[in-house]
């Protein structure tokens, strides 16, 4: 089932078109990556899902119904530009933000204390935020995003500004939120994290949805029959071993071994491997799938 559906959404600002007839869907329980270059319209889309701005046309559906004001309690949002009141005490501030999401103060306090314990910042409960380190502030921001146990979590560039330890913690928390049944949307430039944790993605560029699907499918679609073969160095006339339909793209010597990148047509693998095995052992042989980073760059450049 789709938790979120964006249907033909268009949004124009004074000087430019931010989203042009964008549609996408997010299945319940998945981790969904919202990718795109800067200024593509990701934040605009996220703000519309959070009802901070409204689409000019099109609609946004949550659980099959048009999104409405009371749905804010179902959504947890960590914006790209995020911060806290510097002069307010950490605990008090977290309760305030939870209250705005519709959590009763007494309930909020009990839950917050648990989270503060978990993240080892309970000693800072009564300290002003300005006295906390940046890492601690990020922890509080994360806690206030998830405290009301939203069904849908939206993280806009969550890894920017996080130190490696906190970034890793965030990654683990996102995975554990998914395990508990939450759906997570996050926009990022960090393609490694996309490969690691995303189930599906959408790629937005110049206000348009230009690529969408599960990470696995997309990788399959973008593969170009490239293989990497590693053999002991010193094979003479390696070219001669290639059957018809195979071509050598590039080679590299790594001391004891040679790494060759080949383009191999379907059905020629067996012949190639047979040829090589006659003269040498094969150290490693694998298909080279494009990285999300490659796909991202290729698609965006191709689109432009």
């Amino acid at each position: 089932m789709n938790i979120l559906q964006v249907n033909n959404v268009t949004k124009a600002y004074v000087n430019h078109l931010a989203l042009d007839n964008v549609s996408l869907e997010v299945r319940e329980g998945e981790i969904f990556g919202l990718l795109g270059p800067n200024g593509a319209g990701k934040t605009t889309l996220i703000r519309m899902i959070n009802q901070i701005t409204a689409p000019d046309s099109g609609e946004i559906m949550l659980y099959g119904n048009r999104i409405k004001a009371s749905d804010v309690s179902l959504i947890g949002y960590l914006p790209e530009e995020r911060g806290l009141y510097k002069k307010m005490k950490a605990g008090e501030q977290a309760i305030y933000l939870a209250e705005l999401k519709g959590v009763k103060p007494s309930v909020a306090e009990a839950k917050l204390r648990e989270w503060f314990e978990k993240f080892d910042i309970i000693g800072w409960w009564d300290k002003k935020v300005e006295e906390l380190s940046k890492g601690m502030q990020q922890k509080i921001q994360f806690i206030t995003t998830v405290l009301h146990e939203p069904k849908l979590l939206i993280f806009d560039e969550p890894f920017s500004g996080f130190d490696p330890i906190n970034a890793n913690m965030l990654k683990q928390e996102i995975i554990s939120l998914k395990a508990k049944g939450a759906t997570v949307i996050f926009s990022t430039h960090n393609m490694e994290s996309v490969e690691e944790i995303c189930d599906s993605i959408v790629l937005i560029d110049k206000a348009k949805n230009i690529l969408q699907g599960s990470v696995r499918d997309i990788k399959q679609n973008f593969k170009s029959n490239e293989y990497e073969i590693i053999v002991p160095s010193g094979i003479e006339n390696f070219d001669m071993l290639l059957p018809e339909g195979c071509s050598l793209l590039r080679s590299e010597n790594n001391g004891d071994t040679d790494v060759h990148i080949l383009k191999i047509e379907k059905g020629k693998n067996a012949q190639l491997l047979g040829n090589i095995l006659q003269v040498a052992d094969i150290v490693s042989y694998r298909e080279v799938l494009p990285t999300m980073n490659d796909i991202f760059i290729k698609t965006v450049q191709g689109y432009e």
């Binding site: 901070i52 804010v72 959504i75 949002y77 914006p79 530009e81 995020r82 911060g83 933000l97 705005l100």
Partner: peptide, 18 residues
């Protein structure tokens, strides 16, 4: 302006209308 400079405002307006 404090809320804008603190960057807390976007969190707030995701819970309440500006």
């Amino acid at each position: 302006s404090e809320e804008k400079m603190n960057r807390i405002v976007e969190v707030l307006v995701s819970s309440i209308k500006p």
